[in-house]
Amino acid sequence: MRLLALLVAGLLAAPALAQGLTGNIAIHDPSIAVPSDGFASFATGVEGASDGGQIRTKTSPDGVDWQETGALPGGMPAWVETELGFTPKNIWAPAVTEHNGTHYLYYSVSSFGKNDSAIGLMTNAALKAKTPTEGWTDQGLVLRSRAGDDFNAIDPFRIDSGTKAWLAFGSFWNGIKLIEIDPQTGMPLPDSEAQFIASRQGDAIDAPAILEHEGKFYLFVSFDACCGGIGSSYRIMVGRADAVTGPYLDKAGKPLLEGGGTELVSTTGRFVGPGGQEVFMRNGEPWLVFHFYNKDDGGTPNLYLAPIKWADGWPEIDPLQ
């Protein structure tokens, strides 16, 4: 057992390389968990698939070589059609985080271009990277938006800070919102109200992710258009704040609530439309995960992992390669 533990520790401590991924890396809207036995990814489901468009998973022993492990079982959760009045073609943009040994997997259900949407939650008290489809219990509805609302309840991301937790979410409309949640249940607190933390006044902004680092909070978002293969214009932007609730400012001091944002990564060479990003911790250090559309492979969305580096208090990643 000691030898096995040492082997696993060695795999998880693989060199901090952003490039060189192997295996099955076709993915959209990736989210990464790092249990004790390796790495697991969760991603947007396949539209119209026989599995009901459920969240897709992959496993990796080292974060480099990835293999497909299929969709979560059960198809589209039963509550979704009742709540929305229609059955979405697939589940979007899952986001996995861990709190006190339990993994929380938030997900989005909607239809393209509309904000008649909902965020749901699954939990898993014993997630294994080798079998990431096993052990999930659906907890049902977390948040809802309807036609006429000024926000869209998709693209959830949870951040824990101290004894508290928040859920960031949103796409288009008036932008990104943040709401305090119960750290144990993962649901909004009874007296909590969502507030906007980033906006482009109706222009494209989505995929929020928040990282706490050395007393500051960093909000990562995607600007512009996803989901168009090599025609995508997605790019990853960032802002910084002294509190998780903001205000978030870019390097020039422009508020993200007023369309601000400092570009972190954008299209370069075969890497088209990088976005749908999240942050996760690997060996105690923050990493960025996102997809890009591979120009050399007909625009197939591919996985990219990169260690986050720092310069004058701002995140950077090495040039894509």
Rank of each mutant, 00 (worst) to 15 (best):
G246M: 12
A43C: 14
D250G: 09
N115Y: 02
V46G: 10
I205W: 06
R144A: 12
I205E: 07
G74D: 08
F220Q: 09
A18H: 05
V109G: 14
T163S: 11
A26M: 14
L84Q: 08
Q54A: 10
G148K: 06
P286K: 04
L105S: 00
A33H: 08
W173E: 12
L219G: 08
L219F: 10
G215M: 00
E81W: 01
L17W: 13
E47V: 15
R200E: 09
P315S: 09
L264S: 02
T133E: 07
T262V: 03
H28A: 11
I308F: 01
M76N: 05
F169W: 08
S222P: 00
D296K: 04
I308H: 00
W173M: 09
G38S: 00
I25S: 10
V221R: 00
F42S: 05
V64E: 13
R158M: 14
A78W: 07
P190E: 01
M237N: 07
P188R: 06
Q277L: 10
A49K: 13
D155C: 01
K128M: 03
F157C: 10
L105E: 00
W314D: 11
Y104W: 06
S108A: 11
T57S: 08
Y234I: 04
L4V: 15
M76Q: 12
G228K: 14
T123E: 15
S192R: 09
K216A: 13
Y304M: 14
V265A: 15
W79E: 02
H28Q: 10
N124Y: 02
L6M: 11
L105G: 00
I308K: 00
T245H: 03
P188S: 06
M122A: 11
I32E: 01
A306P: 07
Y106E: 05
H99A: 01
S36L: 09
T57C: 10
A16G: 00
G85R: 03
G101C: 07
T267Q: 01
D160I: 03
G259R: 04
Y234Q: 09
S110K: 11
W79N: 02
N24R: 15
A204E: 06
G239H: 08
D29E: 04
I181G: 05
R200Y: 06
G53Y: 00
N115D: 02
D51I: 07
V279K: 08
T102D: 06
L7T: 15
D242F: 07
T82E: 11
P255L: 14
A18D: 03
L219D: 10
G20D: 02
Q184F: 14
L303N: 12
I91S: 03
S171E: 03
T123W: 14
D62T: 00
L84S: 09
